[in-house]
Amino acid sequence: MSPDAQGPPTTDTLVSVRGAHVRFGAGRGAGTGAVRAVDGVDLEVARGEVLALVGESGCGKTTLIRSMIGLEPLAEGSIAVDGLEVTRNARELRALRRRAQMIFQDPTGALNPRHTIFEAVAEGLRIHRVDGDETELVTAALASAGLRPPERYLRRFPHELSGGQRQRVLIAAAMALDPVVLLADEPVASLDASIRGEILALMRSYVDTHGVSIIAVTHDLGLAWNIADRVAVMYLGRIVELGPTEEVLADPQHPYTRALLSVVPETRGLEQQILQGETPDPSRMPAGCRFHPRCPVVASGEAARLGIEARCRGEDPVLTQRSAGHTAACHL
């Protein structure tokens, strides 16, 4: 990996991922058959930064953030959050799981239907034996997540709340532990479009008030435009483009990013490039550039004209610098 693949040089790195690999099934070996969900990712996220991790389902974006708190064990490489290495040691993992909090895609499923809202928010406080008056901490967290007056919610059950309110409860529960980073897995995908903005604004507000970082997994580039400082585009377990949001979305360097951008309804006059075929299968990694079987540049013959087709089919591209802090992994 080239040294300039690490994003902008930051003095205050919060999350650092180095050579991370996560594999499922088939003996977890590097050989065939194993699902290479995360297949060599290097990434740094600064304190107070919002990063959008974008890609289709199966690209490993969710697995990557889950591995940041040890929910998926690393096969190779290392991850550190706020100076804490992700290990298999239960005590160290617990400390890590206080500083990094997850937000889930489906707030309905993430709340135990038998627990009241109070219990849902207090659960983390109890697990980590947080000092202070429990009721006070819970009400403060609910209020800061926009559930006002908080007392009205304490004794209610999840099914009595709307989807948006449930997601607020989960965000409140996460923020109650005063984390340094929120790992948000499609935080608004299951919500009505009309209320997504409010939830995103809430998450973004914690960046300003608490200095928290956010790594948001999403397939929605609009979300990235709405809240992210930087965008990382993932394809088949690897980051193929990384850079400041404005740059990546205004001047995408990787054909995959361009295709993703072109199918967002109402972008700008980008010609639609609908990639054919299914979402890629991480158990069958293509040789060469992993994107080449679906790459419009290869399919249109442009790669052949430019004389890079052989490299596309045979050589795995690494992230190279395109402009300040903007890298892409493409032979183009």
Binding site: I69, L71, D106, G109, E123, I127, H128
Partner: peptide, 14 residues
């Protein structure tokens, strides 16, 4: 397999 069990784990639950 419920998501709330996953969440409890992510919260650091034993």
């Amino acid at each position: 397999e419920r998501l709330y069990v996953d969440r409890a784990r992510a919260l650091g639950a034993s």
